Amino acid sequence: MSLFAWLRPSQPALDAAQQQRLAQLPGPAPLQDHTLRAQRWVVLDLETTGLNLNRDQVLSIGAVVIEDGAIDFSQQFERTLHRHDHKPGPSVLIHGLGPSAIAAGCVPADALLDLMAFIGDSPLLAFHAGFDQRMLSRALKDSLGYRLQHPFIDVAELAPLLNPDVVLRDAGLDDWTAHFGLQAGERHHASADAQVTAELALILFSQARRQHIDSPLLLEHRLQGWRRRRQHSHGF
Rank of each mutant, 00 (worst) to 15 (best):
H150Y: 01
L93A: 09
H234E: 10
M1S: 11
P28A: 03
P26Y: 07
F131R: 12
D72S: 12
R8L: 07
R187V: 03
S215M: 09
L22N: 01
H234I: 13
A208G: 01
A29F: 07
T49A: 11
D33H: 00
I102R: 06
S91H: 11
L161Y: 15
M1Y: 11
L44G: 09
L182P: 01
E78H: 15
R187H: 12
P26F: 00
H221L: 11
W41A: 02
I61F: 05
S137N: 14
V196S: 02
H95W: 01
A29L: 09
D45M: 07
A5D: 04
F152D: 10
E186Y: 06
H128C: 05
D121P: 08
Q224D: 15
F118C: 00
S122C: 07
P28Y: 01
G120T: 00
R230W: 02
V58Y: 05
A190D: 07
L22D: 01
L161W: 06
R138P: 07
D121H: 07
V43R: 06
Q19C: 11
G120C: 09
H212F: 15
A70G: 12
G50P: 00
L144E: 02
S191A: 12
D85P: 02
Q20D: 12
D85M: 14
E199G: 04
L97K: 05
A5L: 06
Q183R: 05
D154P: 02
A201G: 05
A117T: 02
G27V: 00
D85L: 07
F236I: 14
P108R: 07
L44I: 10
L36D: 08
L136Q: 03
F131D: 09
H212I: 10
S2T: 15
Y146K: 13
D214M: 04
A13L: 15
G145F: 02
G185T: 01
E186S: 08
